[in-house]
Design a protein around this nucleic acid. Structure first.
Lengths: 341, 341
DNA sequence: CTGAAAGCGCTTACAG
DNA sequence: CTGAAAGCGCTTACAG
């Protein structure tokens, strides 16, 4: 069993409160001799004393901890390492810890577990990372819960931090227009979403809207490539894009919903002997990490670091002002240039 | 301030201990009437009562929590989402929470913070994910620490869970040999490691060793492609591989240290009009996620889910048997077939 | 300078 | 069936 404060005190022959004061540097007002301080600190070290945080927390009345709530379903929450690190670092500045928690999803058997999970959480606040629209029930459960919560990658009126997808899409479209492209297509995601997902992520609508807006403004015609909304197996994708690129009136530029589309499109382009960017300009949305993992295509990069930091800031404010809500904030994408436009 | 047990008790007009017993289902032996049970549960619900976990933990003498220790340095720890989820799920089965903690690295200014971080951790055990050899100092700090620890993705004699890279490399080499390839090259990583990293990850040696073993066994000649150990900018990589593939005696198969090498090699192959796999067979090491993010190359896939689960198992055993060590365990890669061999 | 005491919110033998 | 009490390990006014 771990050493307690009492044991350290006994070893030195003083009262536990003295040890506590010295170890917590609350002794400045008391003119305790350096000798005694050293003596006590050394004893704590020798005995391998580690303060019991639970005991401390119970006194302080908080947990010094924030929980990151994730979906259990693969694909329903988005947790790139940079987001995680940024959340951690920002919490660390406030001497708070980060707790990871997957919440059972609506259709799962464990659904009834949610309240239990939320109850057993040792956290002062919640960071909710449900990338895709989550069931009403979960939202309700979380809002009903006493803990302050901030939502990330989701567009709510209040208490959310999300990337400005529409603005980024406009920016990307303008890049392609400025490059002199005339037949600029938008390629929607085709593989990521399962059929039973009714509520789609806001980025799906917003990216297209931004694209459409700029294209029309430039007097061009929007074209959406999405295989009629049907999923397409990985193997079939190259074929699909090859066909599109072999038409007479083929696109001379493409804007991709997500970087997973890059591989089949680049393969199709090479098959058709189309040079990038001379014959075909490409720009995609991508994760921050893509910049460092060999993406050779220009990208609108998710502002994961900033989102993490801002979310923690907002959550801290909510923790300090219980019951208060804050306006949601959008964050701009950054632009990663790789010579494909 | 949150509702306490006492307040619930007062609302119903009973003693706090009664409420505690009923809410924790310890009331079976006491024949408490269903009516009273319902009454108390309802009151707890109405008042939004959430038990204070710190208070509970302090009584139980543990934290119900395990900390995952990560490096602060990008690239020094490897945290794919499936590993994280698997760790979470396995802990969840044991009603334990997961705490994320980045530890300052040896060369950082915050280095002195390590002991403090370790001290302030509310955890019953440590899962250490320092993918690359970590400084002696950190190892020492962690071993000195009273908490039981398990290391993942690292090959120690004791208390570690790691993937069997040598075995996987042998398997991959055999695949290429069985496909009738004669000029099988091994492509070492060139971009990931900075110059100042002296201790390299064991996978670097082990993968090459496995490859070399099988190649020699088959009477073939090992060839290592690594640009003389020098880093190569992304842009230069396609050039580099194009040159290699344009030689008369070019490789007819390649085994890649990591999937980040796929893009430049595939691009170079297309430039040279080499068909995959007819003219060039490829097989790479990759993360579990790659299978779902459009990797079109056969891969030895990191067993992230199994590693997470096994690490948690071992850690649980260590928590139950303080001071005891366990033999390290290796875990096999799985093989992802994508038609490139 | 130091100690005795109260108390954070909870659980659990123990007594009735 | 229920209550009074002790105690988990700590911190912090309060008293000396």
């Amino acid at each position: 069993m771990p050493t307690t404060l009492k044991e350290v005190a006994k070893a030195v022959g003083v009262h536990p409160s003295v040890v506590s004061r010295i170890l917590n540097n609350k002794a400045d007002n008391y003119n305790i001799s350096d000798k005694r301080k050293d003596e006590i600190r050394q004893a704590a070290l020798d005995l391998g004393y580690v303060p019991n945080i639970s005991a401390r927390n119970i006194r302080k009345g908080n947990f010094g901890c924030v929980a990151l709530l994730l979906s259990s379903d693969r694909g329903k929450s988005y947790l790139p390492i940079h987001l995680l690190e940024s959340i951690h670092d920002e919490l660390d500045k406030n001497n708070k810890h980060l707790l990871m928690t997957k919440l059972p999803d609506a259709h799962s058997d464990d659904y009834a577990k949610i309240p239990k999970v939320l109850q057993t959480l040792m956290a002062d606040g919640l960071l909710v990372d449900y990338t895709h629209q989550v069931s009403e029930e979960i939202v309700l459960q979380i809002e009903k819960h006493t803990l302050p919560a901030v939502w990330i990658f989701v567009k709510h009126d209040k208490d959310s931090i999300y990337p400005d997808n529409k603005k980024a899409a406009k920016f990307a479209a303008r890049k392609l227009i400025e490059a002199g492209r005339k037949r600029i297509a938008y390629v929607a995601e085709m593989t990521h979403f399962s059929d039973d997902m009714i509520d789609l992520h806001y980025s799906i609508a917003d990216r297209y809207a931004g694209y459409e807006f700029e294209i029309k403004k430039a007097g061009l015609k929007p074209r959406k490539i999405n295989n009629n909304g049907k999923l397409l197996a990985r193997e079939k994708q190259v074929e699909y894009f090859t066909e599109i690129l072999s038409k007479k009136n083929r696109p001379d530029a493409m804007m991709l919903y997500w970087s997973s589309l890059v591989v089949p499109i680049v393969q199709a382009a090479r098959k058709m002997n189309l040079r990038i960017p001379e014959d075909l300009s490409l720009i995609t949305f991508a994760s921050y990490l893509s910049q460092h993992s060999g993406l050779t295509i220009d990208a609108m990069v998710e502002p994961e670091i900033e989102i993490g930091a801002k979310a923690v800031c907002m959550l801290n404010k909510k923790i300090k002002n219980p019951g208060k809500s804050f306006s949601s904030q959008s964050v701009d994408f950054s632009y990663w240039q790789a010579g494909s436009v």
